[in-house]
Amino acid sequence: MKRYIIGRLGQGVAVLALVAVVVFIISRLSGSPVNQMLPEDATEAQKEQLTRELGLDQPLPAQFGLFFVKILGGDFGESHRFHIPALELVLSRLGNTVALAVVALIIAVVIGVALGMRAALSRGKLVDHVITGLLTIGQSVPSFWIGILLILAVGVSLKWLPFAGNNSPQSIILPAITLSIVPLISIARVTRSSMIETMNKNYITTAKAKGLRGPQIVIKHMLRNSSIPVLTITGLMFAEAIGGAVITERIFAWPGIGSLAVEAIATRDYAVIQTITLIVAFFVVSISLLVDLAYLLVDPRIRVLKEVH
């Protein structure tokens, strides 16, 4: 078991190192930030001086070596737009993105698992057809369009909830609902298919023969034994929500790392772009590891298999 965990940690470190290389190269290929940092009437001498100060006149391997050494020391550089450490700036926005992703995922899990279970238990009936039809329609509708509709209907027309910024606890509701649409559909589909597969297992027949009631069978046997695919998709969806909240944050003016990333790309703020990418990669790797560990808790068979290997 320890060897497995150490091996997964090593894989995670390797992935983060690869991400650092890729984001460094791509950010440099996007162009120099010098023109954005200086006024339009800046002279060539001023541009050359700033290029030297930023170390952009050095060969790429030398730039990457300096970049990597600084990261290992916790120095992610300074935002040339805000003139503060990039890590400090990103961390100040990260909490908003994580809060948005967590609330969206809670909505997605609660509603998605409920819909998936209901559809599975009513397989082939009208309820199943209605739920799967709604999921198909929801999958074909862009989430940003749903966000715009929520703003117009709930925010502008009815004035029930705020729809811009993060000025009150209620401000998170509309963007969280918008961000939850994609994971909700995926979780519901996986729950339905996994439960249908589980319903045909011999131990379900045995449980019914022992006289167990419907709720006991559904929760203790069906849902638990169907939970591994649901855990997988939930972990993936949370990681995707952290890294893919850009559109939602822009629509609702939510002050998270998604909207910050768009601004950083527009101004070629290397330090901020690199910091956001590495932090999102860290979240993805960490969530992947936590999902693997959750497997061991949910299904003892996997725990035994890992111990054997």
Rank of each mutant, 00 (worst) to 15 (best):
G258I: 10
I257Q: 01
A264S: 14
I204H: 07
I242P: 06
G256I: 03
D269V: 08
R250I: 10
E197V: 00
E263Q: 13
R250P: 06
T205D: 12
D269N: 08
V285R: 05
F283D: 02
W254T: 03
I247G: 07
V285C: 01
R250H: 00
M195C: 09
G243Q: 08
P215I: 09
T206E: 11
S193F: 07
S288E: 01
A264R: 05
G258A: 01
M195E: 06
S194R: 08
L236V: 14
A281F: 07
A281T: 08
G235I: 03
A266F: 14
K201R: 15
S226A: 14
L212S: 07
R192Y: 00
I228F: 05
S227E: 05
I279E: 06
Y270M: 12
F283Q: 03
A281H: 07
I257V: 15
P255C: 12
V246F: 07
A245I: 02
V262Q: 14
S227V: 08
V190A: 06
I276N: 00
T206W: 14
I287E: 12
G256P: 01
G211R: 13
M237N: 10
I279F: 10
T267S: 15
E263P: 01
A239N: 03
S288K: 07
M237I: 03
N225T: 03
M199N: 06
G214L: 13
Y203E: 09
R224M: 11
T191A: 15
S288A: 13
G244V: 10
L289C: 09
L290G: 02
V280R: 00
G258P: 11
M237Q: 14
A266M: 13
I287G: 11
F282K: 04
N202H: 14
P229C: 09
V190K: 05
A261I: 10
I251P: 10
V284M: 15
I279K: 06
R213L: 02
A266I: 07
R192Q: 13
A264P: 02
L290Y: 09
I233A: 12
T191Q: 11
A245D: 06
V272P: 07
R250T: 09
A207W: 12
I279T: 11
L223C: 06
K210E: 02
L236G: 00
K220M: 11
F238P: 02
G235V: 08
P229L: 11
R213S: 13
I276Q: 01
E249T: 03
N200W: 05
G243N: 02
S227N: 00
F283I: 05
R213K: 13
